[in-house]
């Protein structure tokens, strides 16, 4: 293995104390920022080389982006895939453009990795009242995310994770060109690495499609996909992020089993050990234990 690295992606859960604060105080943004900084320090203490923005300030995967864009509002609640967590649906009412200075309020100082919805997933989970055409919609969202990507580059982020759960359950075949175009624009706007994560569903067509998409790496939910499914991805030129720590169950993974799986892949390119889905589906104390486990496994293998 040429290079083994670790990170976690997505929204990290808030602590019990912080949850209480958000219930009692009207203005708690500073408390969110302080907890973000604590999680950043925690990663450093566990020898993470890539420091993730825990996105503690994010109410859902869309909200700060929707609030940072002209032409987008948020409407009713919708279930986030097959979870008991809900998000407010972005509604695109006019051509989206970036409102300056808003997104920065949601970023954590010192972080190097952040997760955004990928343009296809954004289009599937939001409501289009402007484009009237899915391809144009995907391209329009791609341009918007590219502008955000350019902004975060300037803030020092060097990894952009695109969360792509919708590839698993939403028909993407008719939009392959638009998706690739949108990903290209995002990739070109971001100075660091772009890794797209697919999770929640085992869709081999989607996995193969993303393997040929213009991004640096693929993140795979190893609780939806099987080890054999990713054999084709091994050493095909893309970096691989192994979502092998389960963000959806409190049960702790068997360390030896995970090490065996990683070793069995014989992967030559850069490999990342990461979570399969956002840790926000766990209470924070369990998410922290899983962060510890990522660090421990990386240490054992290295």
């Amino acid at each position: 293995m040429k290079e083994l690295n670790t990170y976690f992606f997505g929204i990290f859960p808030r602590s019990e104390k912080l949850i209480d604060i958000t219930r009692k105080k009207q203005n708690y943004h500073e408390d969110l920022i302080q907890e973000s900084l604590k999680i950043i320090e925690y990663q450093k203490s566990k020898s993470f080389k890539i420091i993730s923005d825990p996105q503690i300030t994010w109410e859902d995967m869309f909200r700060p982006l929707a609030l940072s864009a002209e032409g987008i509002t948020v409407n009713g609640l919708n279930r986030y895939f097959e979870t008991n967590t809900f998000y407010k649906v972005p509604v695109i009412r006019a051509k989206p453009s970036v409102k300056e200075g808003i997104l920065k309020k949601y970023l954590a100082t010192g972080a190097e990795l952040i997760s955004f919805p990928d343009p296809f997933t954004f289009s599937c989970l939001s409501k289009d009242e402007f484009y009237g055409d899915k391809e144009k919609f995907i391209e329009g969202i791609g341009n918007l995310i590219a502008t955000f990507a350019s902004q975060i580059s300037k803030e020092g982020y060097r990894y952009l994770i695109l969360k792509g759960p919708s590839y698993g359950n939403c028909e993407f075949r008719n939009y392959e060109k638009s998706i690739k175009d949108a990903l290209s624009v995002i990739k070109a706007s971001f100075k660091g690495k772009v890794i797209i994560h697919i999770y929640f569903y085992r869709n081999l067509n989607a996995l193969n499609f993303l393997a040929s998409s213009p991004v640096d790496g693929i993140g795979v939910d190893m609780y939806s996909f099987k080890t054999d499914d990713i054999k084709n991805l091994v050493n095909n030129g893309k970096e691989l992020a192994l979502g092998i720590i389960n963000g959806f169950n409190t049960k702790m993974e068997n360390e030896d089993h995970i090490i065996n799986v990683i070793r069995s892949l014989n992967f030559n390119g850069p490999l990342y050990i990461t979570n399969n889905v956002d840790f926000e589906f766990l209470p924070q104390k369990f998410a922290l234990k899983k962060v510890d486990l990522i660090s421990k496994i990386a240490g054992e293998i290295s």
């Binding site: 109410e59 998000y87 407010k88």
Partner: peptide
């Protein structure tokens, strides 16, 4: 009970294993 998990925004529910 193991702790609270987000339902939406800053609404949480206590979740058990």
């Amino acid at each position: 009970f193991v702790g609270r998990v987000r339902s939406w925004d800053n609404k949480y529910y206590k979740k058990a294993r």
